[in-house]
Design a binder for these strands. Structure first.
Lengths: 205, 205, 205, 205
DNA sequence: TATGAATGAGTTTTCATTCAT
DNA sequence: AATGAATGAAAACTCATTCAT
């Protein structure tokens, strides 16, 4: 077959894009490397020139897809003109919204199919997200607008709860009304658990 | 090979026990049916005499391993001589403690290995646990000792958060001190999120 | 389970009846011994008390289902008040008609599924049918109403042709009109190949 | 094991050839894919690189084995310098002769073993053969050298009869004498059933 | 960089049959 | 006559990965 040489970066991106689509359609486990290369139009071996393994591809794909959010997350966190509560609100909205986006990587999967990928995504997300939020919480405590004791642990519990909750309710998020209702619940837990004094944060759309 | 006939219940339990051990050692995906039967000392066919598939075995095993807790959970929930706060405390302690026990099914796994089983267990656990807790929360609201709005959602978020948290910190639960520290965090979230008036619940050991 | 003892013949017949139904529904290969015993309501072992093997069951079942026709076939063949042509006609009608009946043992099968059974049936049928027809043909030659040289071979070819043809067209035999049309073709071949002088035989309905 | 790369076409042919031999020796059902690859000396996976399934291999093998005849069949059918009777004779000889050759795919089988393959071959053969012969018969009717009514059906019956007959007598075809005897029978049926005016066709060797 | 043929271990599942009771 | 638990061989297919070119 004709040998088509491309810019390596381009080629790699091509593979990752295709994989991302296939993974979200059929689940990591159910997508064979051969499926990916077939769709991209390259040889089996080419894949292994760019990635060490299928697992490696998954990692890179997930990593890449979190990079965007992470950057924005950090941007917010570093703002000096926002108080902790404002930051928290922004950061949560961003995460929740993009979470919905990220969802497209997993939404078609019934549970059995592909927990691997979903878990990994969750985990990686938590890894990026937790430090940022923790930072904000610390700021909030210093500023006196959050009041809580085991703030590290509580923050972790809250984030994990929200993540799990979002995962559980994704299928139900059809209309704005439902979304807002769910968001209200999240607001409530956060507000109370962080011991916010003033008014609560607002996440609805 | 010598044909050893046993009481069906016994044989089935034998298989399930062995499977439980192997699953926790190597992960569901990494245990072949052939591994199980080899260890039990029966023929491959015998396995399929008792279970429709490997998946079926997993379901039954998990189900069985939750049965005990579920019963106790319900026992507590139905008590008439405990107020909501007492019930909640008991129920959480039970879950947390047994959760530690349940851990033996997953403790040896590094993360990559076996999300299938773990997720399924989580899910099944949540299915059993959530209704019970929800009931208690409703009771607490009626009794006036819990104060919160979106109680259904908040309860769900809290439970998922705790589950996720427990999962995340299992490797760290070495000494009583650490455990108590983590428990304190859980107490704090719960107490605040449910808007408990009086003193908080206590989960430490 | 309750042990229900029955008259052996009855029990055996019960199994054969059930098997016949299942075979015709799903094909010999696709019916497991366990399916049969389950439906009959006896134990696996009971099956092997009555039959040496699954194959044995098939043979006996087919044999039994051909016995009826064979008897009738012989009855006709032995008549002394019919000439060869009349006999041939009767015999063919009988076979064709019962063939349609026999069809219920194979009609639901797509070709891949179960040629074993069908071939065996065909073969057994031919074994019973051929001698009878051959006999009639010989009579016809003596009587002078059939004129042909290699009568043994020609008879065989004709019968095999008809069998194959019937098999091929079974799916099309919806209405009387179609049937008659097909029968006419059979009449034509027979009449010509056997070199019948007088008018032809008639098989339509 | 040493990795030996070959021209794909060659490798595929190699597999098909080996399969053809094994199938004819032991029957399709009784040949495992592992048998084939072992004999060819390639890995199991290699097989599935070239064929989608064992069934697929069978189809391709049979198809290939009919290709030669089919081409010759058509060549004859399209001749303009032969009358229908000549064509029919040529076509039948070709089929009968090659049929004997084709026999190597099934000759070692006792009846139980392998109807799948044989039926499929028969069917595929009929599919190719029937249209050609039908065409010739139509030509013959136009030319006036064949006289019959339900020519389509009659042709089908004749071909199926001959096919079945050939199958039945293969084991007996030892010497030229026997063959000629059987051929004579075929000639007779054909000649009579098609209502040939002039002298009959001749198939002997 | 890229190809694509080749690898081969690994897995679930089916089912006819046996046999101790 | 009947049970039903137990057997175990067999078999098709998958797919991540390798490697000679």
């Amino acid at each position: 077959m004709a040998r088509i040489t491309k810019d390596p970066e381009e080629r790699k991106a091509e593979i990752m894009n295709t994989a991302e689509v296939l993974f979200s359609e059929k689940g990591f486990r159910n997508v064979a490397v051969s499926d990916i290369v077939k769709k991209v139009g390259v040889a089996q071996g080419t894949f292994y020139y760019y990635f060490n393994s299928k697992e490696d591809l998954l990692n890179q794909t997930l990593e890449r897809s979190l990079d965007g959010i992470t950057q924005n997350l950090n941007l917010i966190a570093e703002k000096t003109d926002m108080d902790a509560q404002q930051k928290l609100q922004s950061v949560l909205r961003l995460a929740l919204l993009s979470g919905v986006g990220k969802q497209n990587m997993t939404e078609h999967l019934d549970n059995t199919q592909d927990n691997d990928m979903h878990n990994k995504l969750q985990e990686k997300f938590h890894e990026k997200f937790y430090p940022v939020v923790l930072n904000i919480v610390e700021q909030g405590i210093k500023e006196g607008c959050f009041v809580l004791d085991s703030y590290k642990e509580v923050t972790q519990i809250l984030l994990l709860g929200i993540q799990g909750y979002m995962h559980a309710i994704y299928p139900c998020l059809k209309d704005r009304e439902t979304v807002n209702e769910k968001m209200k619940a999240i607001e409530e837990v956060i507000t109370k658990a962080l011991g916010m004094k003033r008014d609560s944060i607002h996440l609805g759309i």
